[in-house]
Amino acid sequence: MKILAIDTSNRPLSVAVLDGTTVLAAITVTVHQKHAEYLLPEIERLLAMADLQPTDLDRVVVAAGPGSYTGIRIAVTTAKTLAATLDIDLVAVSSLATLAANVPVEGALVAPMFDARNQNVFAGLYRIKQGVPTAEIADTHTDVTAFLTAVGEYGEPVWFLGDADHFRDLIGTTVSAATPAVSPWLNLPQVATIGLLGQKMTPVSDVDRFVPNYLRLTQAEAEWRAKNPEEDTGSYVEKI
């Protein structure tokens, strides 16, 4: 099975090409955040190095959010368009689980966090079970103290990843158990890992209707729904 895996959820851009369990090429870049410009050229380059044509691909695995709205849209648009136009499988993985997959310690608790500003985070708590990150606390957009308090209640060592350094002091006061020191490398998505995991996952059933997992309504929608709680929130888009 030939697999392309991509993640542009935040500043890092990560692309990998796999043939079954063999990683053919993988790259993670953090020097810029011009994903619109660089994602497709990197895919092109890695496939060429692996001596593969786009039409050789069997499956695309994408980190589908949460993260920067523009970032997750670029990865998801690229992935769903590739899957739709080549008629191949699309597998979606949480962008937080993608980071959690960096920890190869069976049974470990991993808390990947993305800074969402104003003391808010996108975060989840995962336990590594047979090498697969399994959600203990589902991905959420939340106040960071509330999240850390919930994590602290486990009373176990927790691997904090991603933007966790932004909240180091807070972690110290809310989580009493040990927090393993983390190499900066583990704070970056390495999509070869989700390329491997994604081979066993169930593909998205409706590629065309697939959208990123924003975990947040737009402000305009949230306000509108608060004012119109009765209104049907079905489809607002029509073909003309």
Binding site: Y69, T70, T81, V211, Q219, V237
Partner: peptide
């Protein structure tokens, strides 16, 4: 932001 979200629902 709403426009972008709709575009990605429709494009393929």
């Amino acid at each position: 932001e709403v426009a972008s979200r709709h575009h990605i629902e429709e494009v393929t």
